[in-house]
Computed example of a mutant assay.
Amino acid sequence: MSTAAPIHVPLPDATAEHQARRRLDELVKPVGSLGRLEELAAWLCGAHGTVPPRPLDDVRVVVFAGDHGVSRTAPGSPGVSAYPREITAAMVRVFCAGTSGVTVLAREVGARVRVLDVAVDAELDDVPREVVARKVRRGSGSVDVEDALAPGEAERAFSVGRAVADEEIDAGACVLVPGDMGIGNSTVAAALTGASLGLPAREVVGTGTGVDEPGRAHKVAVVDRALRRAGDRVGDPFDRLTALGSACAAATAGFLVQAAVRSTPVVLDGVFSVAAALVARDIAPGAARWWLAGHASTEPAQRLGLASLGLEPILDLRLRLGEGSGAVQAVPVLRAARAVLAGMSTLAEAT
């Protein structure tokens, strides 16, 4: 069990949010007629402490990559993913080449993408040194039969995530997006979500990369074994990460917590980032005030996690790619929400 000191998370500026809501009601439009855009505009004012909010011109995605023991499959046996585990390392190279889904989509909105090998089960000698500089371990344990991490590794990976958030914010980031890459990610996310919310495997397991119904049944069995094996150890968030998570899940949790500590808005992505957010909330109560839900994934664990966090997705595009690809699509909506306050006249000014 972790004995780390409590982490202080500041509150958003309630006065700025109240002022924003009052001005929104005074704009040249029917009260409330811009719906969710008005809610997001007021939220941004609270986060920035000013009306209108500052421009959202430096959005940064950090993809935490790692492999999971549950993705190891014997020949002829069912797997938890429609793809082999070797894809994780291959995708890190694709990120570096700038041709992955999130890098292409991020360019469309002017966002930057950084990938980090936190626990890829391969030696990536052909990628830039900075990609592998934060590696915690090679792969994680198969959570249905063993702990994902050794003692102390969850805390170490969490610290990596905090340091990376600091680096991005110090370099000018005004919005952070947690991305993920790892074959088996949705299985680990389901286990973390089930443990965090006290839900059985059958309620949190989805189809992930697109497994068929027998494949989903196999995933349910894997997550069920994992939850039963972990037992009551899941009450402490670092024990939960050790037993059921991964180094990249712990790093993502640290990234989310430090963004909140630094009063920096986060747009959550799919099921993996939301599972990490549930753990992050337990580590740093109040951190969720600094997070938005970028989109609705097709995974049930993401929907259940967002409901627990009290977050409503900005978009629903039926995406299940991960990588931060859904979250970056919400950036233009946030910019539009800011523009409402920055550019519209009040009724008094127009008459």
Rank of each mutant, 00 (worst) to 15 (best):
S77Q: 14
R107S: 13
R240V: 01
M1Q: 15
V120T: 00
A307C: 12
L116I: 06
V61W: 05
P53R: 12
E155G: 11
M181N: 00
G326R: 00
P10Q: 14
C45E: 03
V80N: 10
P151S: 09
R60N: 01
A288D: 15
T3L: 12
A251H: 08
C174V: 15
G270P: 01
V266D: 01
A89K: 02
L56F: 03
A189W: 06
G141R: 09
A280Q: 09
V331T: 00
L341D: 10
A280L: 04
E130Q: 14
G322D: 06
F158I: 09
S196E: 12
L309W: 11
G139I: 04
T73S: 10
F158Q: 13
T15Q: 15
R134V: 11
Y83V: 15
F64I: 03
V92R: 03
D282Q: 15
L306G: 08
A288Y: 07
A5G: 09
E349H: 13
L317D: 02
G35H: 14
R54F: 03
A195D: 07
E213P: 08
S77P: 01
V223Y: 10
P237R: 05
S325Y: 00
R93W: 07
A119Q: 10
L334W: 04
V220P: 10
V104R: 12
M344T: 08
G286C: 10
A119R: 08
L319A: 07
G322R: 05
G152I: 01
Q258F: 01
S77F: 13
L341R: 10
I169N: 04
G305A: 10
A260K: 02
G35I: 11
E168K: 03
V222I: 12
V328Y: 00
G235C: 02
A173N: 00
A4L: 14
D57C: 13
Q258H: 11
A336M: 12
L197Q: 08
V279N: 09
V234H: 05
V120R: 09
K135M: 07
L309H: 10
L292H: 06
P265C: 07
R93H: 05
R72C: 06
L256Y: 03
G215T: 09
D147M: 04
V143R: 07
D58A: 13
A226E: 05
P53V: 03
A284T: 05
R225N: 05
G322Y: 06
G194I: 04
A221E: 15
P12W: 06
M1A: 15
D224S: 05
L197V: 10
V145W: 01
P332Q: 09
A163T: 15
L256Q: 12
R54T: 15
A191Y: 11
P332I: 06
L124D: 06
T264M: 04
V63S: 03
G184N: 07
A253P: 07
G79L: 02
G98H: 01
V62N: 02
A163D: 14
R338D: 14
G172K: 11
A250D: 03
F95T: 01
